[in-house]
Design a protein around this nucleic acid. Structure first.
Lengths: 122, 122
DNA sequence: CATGTACTTAACCGTATAGTTATATAACCG
DNA sequence: CGGTTATATAACTATACGGTTAAGTACATG
């Protein structure tokens, strides 16, 4: 089980149910019951998904009477977005001179290929 | 097992070994032997990781004598990046009037919360 | 205080994942 | 052809994941 933050965020996001929950929470707070409704799934199943999202720091739990509403916390997504930026030029297929130059720059101090110091591109 | 493309991409990325492999391939093509070297892991293990990356469309396999060099294909990362854009305003904590307005817009046609039509925000 | 509502947790199950070792395939090289 | 190099596949193991049902906890209310 990889325990690093980025892995945890990515694997939390790698499930359509959880992404759908996040989409709902982007609209605003919601109770577990509300979050369960759209799915053909029991509440404990949703509860587990919520725990995964919470452990990844993507949602926070508050408290109001017997309700435990969840709120979106997009913070960790920023890290994913920033990590992805390392690769943007690779998916933008600009095969012109400038792109070649940028690629060349990339080759000098591009990515951290040391598996012991991952995901912290200098 | 979620089979949708975005889930497949995200779960392929949710492993530090695989991200490190991608970082290496961002520099240029590499053989399986070269890709194995930095890791304290056997070649079959890396071979499996490569299969995961290949199934996610993040790398492609070519052929040169007895070598099967892998090449980065960042295409699927673009989809992740675009999906994340839906949430950018949530991690950019601009709590001013404009942000409130944008958030209000977001509330009108924001995300797809229907679990049967996920990840295709209109 | 008893009952209902809103969860959470435990125990269990089937399948997937990540690694291993051992074996197979494929291409090159003398 | 026979050996070596490069890689893939098979078989196995241990652990993680995603779901279930059933039982437990916490607050609200009559």
């Amino acid at each position: 089980m990889p325990t690093d933050t980025l892995s945890q965020t990515l694997s939390a996001l790698a499930d359509p149910t959880r992404r759908s929950i996040l989409a709902r929470l982007a609209i605003g707070e919601a109770s577990v019951t509300e979050l369960t409704e759209p799915f053909d799934m029991t509440m404990p199943a949703i509860s587990k998904h919520l725990k995964v999202l919470e452990n990844a720091g993507l949602i926070v739990r508050s408290k109001s009477a017997q309700w435990r509403p969840r709120k979106l916390n997009a913070g960790p997504m920023k890290d994913v977005s920033e990590w992805l930026e390392n690769y943007r030029q690779h998916w933008e297929e600009r095969l012109d001179r400038l792109d070649a130059y940028l690629t060349e720059l990339q080759h000098h101090e591009p990515f951290n290929t040391d598996p012991n110091k991952q995901d912290i591109p200098s």
